[in-house]
Computed example of a mutant assay.
Amino acid sequence: MKALYIDGKLDLVEREVPLPEPGEGEVRIRVHFVGICGSDLHYYFEGANGAFVVKEPLTPGHELSGRVDLDPSGTWAPGTPVTVHPARFGQSEAGIEDAPNLWPGGSYLGSASTTPHTQGGMSECLIVDAGMVRALPEELSLEAAALAEPLAVSLHGVTRAGDVTGKRVLVSGAGPIGLLAVAAAKSRGAAEVTITDLLPEPLARGRAVGADRTIQIGVEEIPENAFDVVLECSGAAPAISQAFRSARRRGIVVQIGMVPDEGRPINLAPAISKEISIHGVFRFVDEIDEAIRILAAEPAVASVVTQVIPATSAAEAFELARDSSASGKVLVSTWLDDPAA
């Protein structure tokens, strides 16, 4: 079968490798679509995602959809449309029994956090544990289903904020995670969702997925002390400082966007003087099931996908995915004549 590998910085190659055989408790998926995530961009353009360095060939991709190819147990019929929860959880620890996403010893598809690296979905076929497979409803396309994983991350961000019913929510950054955070907050009952970005094109996508208001940074002022919850999705230091200014007294700031593992100049004074609660977000727990239901019920969320590029042009897809003026979520379609079928 064919698979894409990141061998290092700006080194993406296609290789022919043996077709993997599923063992007991495993299922082989014929992959159709794979979304390009921020971590994939870091691995390709920098050869590392934070502290996780590409030390051996790495197949990227953890946002995927496809069809069951082979299940030795017979539980899953061949051709069943599915997506995949990309985590294998590790061992529980005291104090985080209810947070398997934080348990040590786990793994995540398409990640250099483990050695050997955990290979991802940019291949013709992928072996996963049977418990990672999620069936898709008939009304949900395989293309839209590739958004289930990033939408689950955004939903987990809202989970960390608590009940947002009737709340005023600010989403900072209109990249794919920010756009999906709008959908997540709206689906959980937020009264008003505002999204900010430096560029007008991502803000237009924000309106398409349901944002009540958009603010272009540098052109319009972002209100201070005005939001019950801020979902910070950019990871940019100035935006994090702004999040603390925008949150109301005793408001909540949820940091969804990843940041480098290094010191950055961030103004904490408003967080202290307003007694703001700050929550981190790392991947998700089980929100992928809710994400599938939302994608099936709200077709407009699929507009987050702006381009589908064949795997034979994967380097072009990576270049496009880091240009937020030209793209939202970019999908790579695998080696199929009609990946949407």
Rank of each mutant, 00 (worst) to 15 (best):
A3G: 13
Y5N: 11
Y5S: 15
D11V: 00
L12W: 05
L12D: 07
E16H: 06
V17S: 02
P20H: 11
P22W: 07
G23F: 14
V27Q: 13
R28Y: 12
I36F: 09
I36K: 12
I36V: 14
C37P: 06
Y43V: 00
F45M: 00
E46M: 07
E46L: 14
V54W: 10
K55S: 15
E56V: 03
P57Y: 13
E63K: 05
P72D: 12
W76K: 07
P78F: 08
V82I: 14
V84P: 14
P86Q: 04
A87C: 13
S92H: 02
E93I: 15
I96V: 13
A99D: 07
P100G: 10
P100S: 10
N101S: 13
P104W: 01
G106E: 10
Y108K: 10
Y108S: 09
S111D: 01
S113T: 02
T114I: 01
L126E: 07
I127M: 03
D129R: 15
G131M: 01
M132I: 03
R134N: 11
A144G: 02
A144C: 01
A146R: 04
E149H: 08
A152Y: 13
L155T: 07
H156F: 15
R160A: 10
G162M: 11
T165I: 02
K167M: 12
I177T: 09
L179W: 05
A181M: 06
R188A: 12
G189S: 06
G189V: 08
E192W: 12
E192T: 04
E192M: 07
L198F: 08
L203E: 06
V209W: 11
G210I: 12
V219L: 13
I222T: 14
N225W: 07
A226S: 14
A226P: 04
F227R: 09
V230Y: 02
L231H: 04
L231Y: 02
C233R: 04
C233K: 03
C233N: 11
A236S: 11
P238C: 02
I240Y: 00
S241I: 01
A243L: 03
R245V: 00
S246V: 09
G251H: 08
I252K: 15
V253L: 05
E262S: 14
G263Y: 05
P265E: 10
I266W: 03
L268Y: 14
S273F: 14
E275W: 00
S277E: 15
F282T: 14
R283W: 08
F284Y: 15
E287R: 01
I288C: 09
I294R: 05
E298K: 08
E298Q: 14
P310H: 05
P310M: 06
E316S: 06
L320M: 13
R322I: 00
S327W: 00
V332F: 03
T334A: 03
A341D: 13
